[in-house]
């Protein structure tokens, strides 16, 4: 079980992520969108969506620092474990609270606003369950281990996460980890695997290139592509 959860599951999740992204890029570019529901309802979204997205971006940065900056680095900078814990506790809780507030508002909006709810697919609902589960369990895991110096995941979970990249996962590190953290990690991996198959895929089209391109884009017709092009997955069928 340990080997499966901490030795195999991460790679399965990662493989599903990459394969899904490649598949989506090749065969479903048309479906690759935020699927915004803002035209139905704007007021709540204008508050909830930025709150959630900025929150989750801070949470992401927090996870990256926590998992991939080794304890020895911060120690060599003179940051003690206690300082680090408090920083991660307050910073993480603030970001987490913003995220939870945002997603709860978003879910409330999605459920109560009839056009938005009707535009919600089964896929979306599954995604919301996993996403909300990952966020809430993460918050719970953090807050139940908040007292004193807290749980120092930088001696167990973080080295394990880094060891995944050397293809020698140190699964034994995860054995003593509190169960709440374990559950959070498993759901997190499920979420990573789900990303390309849900609307979450839009995170991979963050339009950073907008900062660097000229304002007006010119394109020429492809002379090789004359006449109608074959129907594509996701496009409405035009041939009866």
């Amino acid at each position: 079980m340990t080997t499966f959860l901490w030795g195999a599951l991460p790679y399965i999740a990662f493989a599903l992520l990459i394969a899904g992204l490649v598949w989506r890029h090749r065969y479903d570019k048309f479906g690759w969108t935020t699927r915004s529901s803002q035209v139905y309802e704007s007021k709540l979204l204008n508050i909830a969506s930025p709150a959630f997205h900025y929150g989750i971006l801070f949470v992401l940065v927090g996870h990256l620092i926590g998992l991939f900056v080794p304890e020895s680095w911060t120690e060599s900078l003179g940051i003690r474990e206690r300082t680090y814990h408090l920083f991660s506790l307050y910073g993480g809780t603030a970001a987490g609270a913003l995220t939870v507030l945002g997603i709860l508002l978003l879910i409330y909006r999605r459920r109560t606003n009839s056009p938005v709810f009707r535009a919600t697919t089964v896929n979306d609902k599954l995604m919301y369950v996993v996403l909300l589960g990952a966020i809430v369990l993460g918050m719970i895991a953090k807050l139940t281990h908040a007292s004193g110096d807290g749980y120092n995941y930088r001696q167990t979970i973080a080295p394990w996460a880094r060891s995944l990249f050397t293809l020698r996962p140190r699964t034994e590190l995860m054995q003593g980890v509190p169960v709440l953290y374990q559950v959070h990690a498993v759901i997190g991996m499920a979420l990573i695997a789900l990303v390309p198959y849900t609307r979450l895929v839009h995170m991979f089209s963050a339009p950073v290139q907008y900062l660097f391109r000229p304002y007006v884009v010119y394109r020429s017709r492809d002379p090789r592509q004359l006449g109608p092009r074959p129907a594509r997955p996701g496009w409405e069928k035009t041939d009866a």
Binding site: K29, T33, P207, Y210, V216, V217, Y218, R219, W235
Partner: peptide
């Protein structure tokens, strides 16, 4: 357009949206 999905055709100046590149921003 943040995605660069919209473009002006160089030949005839028609402004179009590339449906495969639009990300719905």
């Amino acid at each position: 357009c943040p995605s660069g999905a919209m473009y002006k055709r160089a030949e005839d100046g028609i402004v179009l949206v590339d449906q495969d590149r639009c990300r719905g921003w």
